[in-house]
Computed example of a mutant assay.
Amino acid sequence: MSDTDKVFAGSIPKIYDAYLVPLIFSVYAEDLARRVAARAPSVLLEIAAGTGVVTRAVAAALPRGIRYVATDLNEPMLAVAAQRQADDDRITWRQADGMALPFGDAEFDVACCQFGAMFFPDRVKAYGEVKRILKDNGTFVFNVWDRIEDNLLTHEATVALEKLFPDDPPRFMVRTPHGYHDKAVIRSDLERAGFRDIRIETRSEISRAPSAEYVAIALCQGTPLRSEIEARDASKLQAATDIVAEALRARHGTGAVEGKIQAIVIEARR
């Protein structure tokens, strides 16, 4: 993982929230919210909350009287999340590193994490931290993206960028968001961290956008892919966005765009 893969700062958080969340994240947030609500937690921790799409979905699904702590490594992402969330005294926002959670042992009934595990430098260590803060029989609910080939628009965008940077194409999407999808490895990592009753399933959905340009902005400017493009040539961000949009228009037409997305959803018990 590159040092910039975990950095969501500058203009990225707002573009991420405005474009990427409705494009690919909302549908999986609703799925996680249903799973969390089914566990009826009284004290809940969210790791890698981003701009709060899961937080909003879970908060809407849970009753009054719970305690909900939403964390993220990147404070700029949490700032957007807090601004987007209606006043809710159940929720505490806190900057935190998933590798070293600043909470006591056995403090939470449930921990959830949407598309964050791929960013952990040491997943067994991170899962061990989650196990530590969970109560006995507590549940860890999370998801990761499946391989990039099963996520059509992101795959097409990655291929398109190879034309602009043929000698050193940006590989953020392949390397990190779509780099942790082997179910056997995921299960092994959780078992090594001490989890049991591990359930893993594949969940396919359809991603929809009003235009190819919308998808190009979401991916090229609303993720750390932006930093990777600018590291190659800071003047080519718009050119990169344009070449992705052109490639998507060539495949999907000039109107609305849609494509398969696929994730892996995991539930494990302490």
Rank of each mutant, 00 (worst) to 15 (best):
F172M: 05
V265D: 07
R35G: 03
R269C: 15
L23G: 00
A216R: 06
D122F: 00
K236Q: 15
V257Y: 01
Q83E: 15
V159D: 15
D136N: 12
V21D: 01
A263W: 00
F195H: 03
A106G: 14
I261R: 10
H178S: 11
K131I: 14
R199H: 14
A126W: 00
I198L: 06
S207K: 07
S2L: 09
A59K: 03
A218Y: 03
A48C: 14
N137Y: 08
A100T: 10
R192C: 11
Y28G: 11
A81S: 11
R94A: 11
Y16D: 08
V244E: 06
F25A: 14
A57L: 10
W145M: 02
F172H: 04
Q238P: 00
N74I: 09
E149A: 05
L164P: 04
D182K: 07
I229E: 10
E205Y: 12
A82W: 04
L153T: 01
L32F: 04
A48S: 12
R35M: 07
K131D: 09
W93K: 02
L164W: 01
R249W: 14
I24E: 09
P41Y: 04
E201K: 13
V58H: 01
M77L: 12
A250N: 04
D87L: 11
D122S: 01
A48P: 09
T254F: 07
R203M: 12
T154K: 02
L164K: 00
V185L: 05
R39G: 10
L134M: 05
A111P: 06
L23T: 00
A79M: 10
Q238S: 14
A60R: 13
R132N: 04
I15Q: 06
V110E: 05
A117V: 10
A160H: 09
F165G: 00
E30R: 10
E75W: 02
V27N: 12
